[in-house]
Nucleic acid binder design. Structure first.
Lengths: 333, 333
DNA sequence: GACCTTTCCGTGAGCGTTCACGGGAGCGCT
DNA sequence: AGCGCTCCCGTGAACGCTCACGGAAAGGTC
């Protein structure tokens, strides 16, 4: 005697009415007397009836355009502000958004469960094996951020750090900096212990072998940034600029410098990446390589639009778009 | 000739196979030859077939416990950090979370669409009419934050600002403050133009009519906080402490004071509400009435647990729990 | 060639709800 | 009585998919 689900039929029997009457009572529809409605609701309550949203949506053939969004973390404002932008454009187009965090599971798990709920998936995915991501999506299109899609079914909005960092370094040199240090994130793909990030590779390539003095790896948080700055400062004398993986860490670095008695930008310049508005409240305000979150969100939405509309096109390959970050100079550099 | 949905049957016909074979191809199951799989996938692609997640979930009778979370904004770290906590406890209990923002629609709209997707709804809802919220939920239990549930079907995790602010003011007075100003949020329920927030009412009640010198209303953002501070400072001389609606605004106020040349805490003390870790990077670091987001999230999860488990209990009334905020003293006060 | 095994594929029967009907009371009016 | 109307309520028939079968074809073994 398995523990069956309580269905609408059970409630109908309990209340001595038909299915349809239960539906009417539950959904507050017309064509039902107040007395019966009460009786049905009481029966439902007594049995602990909970309608199946799947059956309900199937039968009522609702068209709920929904997309899933997977961000790396809810504790870094960059991602949540990006989520806000995605929400804005999605709402404008009449979509519903389901937001998840990568902390909730592996890329494959997230994509797999999301695939059963939404029509398209956007997100930060780090798994090296793109084919397995596409497989987990079971036909639902996936748009990845800060990465280049390489297999069918996957698409991407990548960031052109090469160009962004090139202009950043040029302008930074024009301001007198020449010996750079880097605070790098310890974020790593699940299987790999550690591999250099796209940002670090761009920095190393463009700063040149000689000028990027030293690199420390730190936790991706304010505390990590402060900690990283301290390590960098103590081990590498002569630095005149510190490049930081992202703004959250850079804010920590600025704060850490303050407690160390290091003056910014006089002793050393600090630059983050992201363009958080929160970066303006540190003392001094944070300079940064700003990523246009609105552009990223809109580009992703356009891709999804293309994917959802074109239901008759032939086999479609990956769509890849690129957004170029721009330096945003404030006081710290 | 209506534009019908493309079903699995259409794909089967197109590929010259049966429904089941299409299922096998789409879901990467076994018992199918690579050749047919390719053919089916090609047919699906050609027709633009998109499986119905509702039908799929119904037929496979998956048990996907999902809860919805509605936060006020993705641009205020308090809410996103709370979301992070909710995600943590939910993931630990095997639930999926759907996060939405109140900026996406009215309370009723959000609850209504969410009700078709999840088993329970948590969120910040401001609509005055609780009965209409319960109606929109169509039987799906709702847990509200920072508010007291008063109708069946609604539950709540409220904050005890009375006690929290009482100890805050006591300790603030012990530090020498006596003439308070308040920067209040302009957030208002949709229909009402403006009504004092719970926080303001608590402040006014406990500070006493004489000591809460003046109140300014500002936008709920850093800019708003800076702006509010300036207005307050220019119009109300003699203040020795400024209480701010939340930490985001308070960070703006601290920054605004800095640009105004006002020294904190020497000229005036500043206190926020929320307990953001980001508050520690301002100069000086922000003092605040800290809300234990983890406790709030866990309490809400417990309520949901009770609601989802007890499927046999009698008619259940509102569950109301309370969390009390605690002062967190840093440099600004 | 008889038999078994493996591989591949198709058929009926639901999953739990809502929709489009149809129909029986009850009432008022001619 | 007869007619029409409103107010309730119930009965098939989907909705689009997956599950549990059953069975044909292909290959292997004695």
């Amino acid at each position: 005697m398995a523990k069956q689900r309580i269905t609408i039929e059970d409630v109908a029997r309990e209340a001595g009415v038909s299915r349809q009457t239960v539906t009417r009572a539950m959904n507050g529809m017309a064509e039902i007397s107040p007395t019966t409605r009460q009786r049905v609701l009481a029966a439902a309550e007594a049995l602990g009836y909970r309608p199946s949203r799947f059956a309900s949506n199937l039968a009522s053939r609702r068209k709920s355009h929904a997309i899933g969004l997977v961000i790396a973390s809810f504790r870094n404002p960059y991602y949540t502000e990006l989520a806000a932008e995605v929400l804005d454009v999605a709402t404008a187009r009449g979509w519903q958004v389901v937001v998840c965090s990568r902390e909730q599971g592996t890329d494959q798990e997230l994509i797999s469960t999301l695939a059963g709920q939404v029509d398209a998936i956007l997100g930060y995915f780090v798994a090296a094996d793109q084919a397995s991501l596409a497989a987990a999506a079971r036909g639902v299109p996936v748009v990845m951020f800060e990465r280049t899609a390489a297999v069918p079914g996957l698409h991407s909005v990548d960031l052109d750090f090469e160009h962004g960092i090139e202009t950043l370094l040029t302008e930074l040199r024009a301001r007198g900096a020449s010996r750079f240090g880097l605070i790098e994130s310890d974020a790593a793909t699940d299987p790999n212990p550690y591999q250099p990030t796209q940002r670090r590779r761009a920095y190393e390539k463009l700063a040149g072998p000689g000028s990027l003095g030293s690199v420390v790896v730190a936790e991706e948080s304010m505390r990590g940034g402060a900690d990283g700055f301290q390590r960098l400062w103590n081990t590498s004398p002569g630095l005149d600029a510190v490049l930081v993986f992202n703004d959250l860490m850079a804010m920590g670095a600025v704060h850490g410098a303050h407690t160390l008695g290091v003056s910014i930008p006089d002793d050393v310049r600090v630059v983050g990446i992201d363009g958080l508005s929160l970066g303006s409240v540190t003392t001094p305000a944070l300079s940064t390589l700003s990523i246009d979150r609105s552009a990223v969100a809109n580009t992703a939405a356009d891709i999804v639009d293309t994917l959802l509309e074109a239901s008759d096109a032939g086999p479609r390959e990956s769509i890849v778009r690129t957004v170029t970050p721009q330096p945003l100079w404030r006081e710290s550099a």
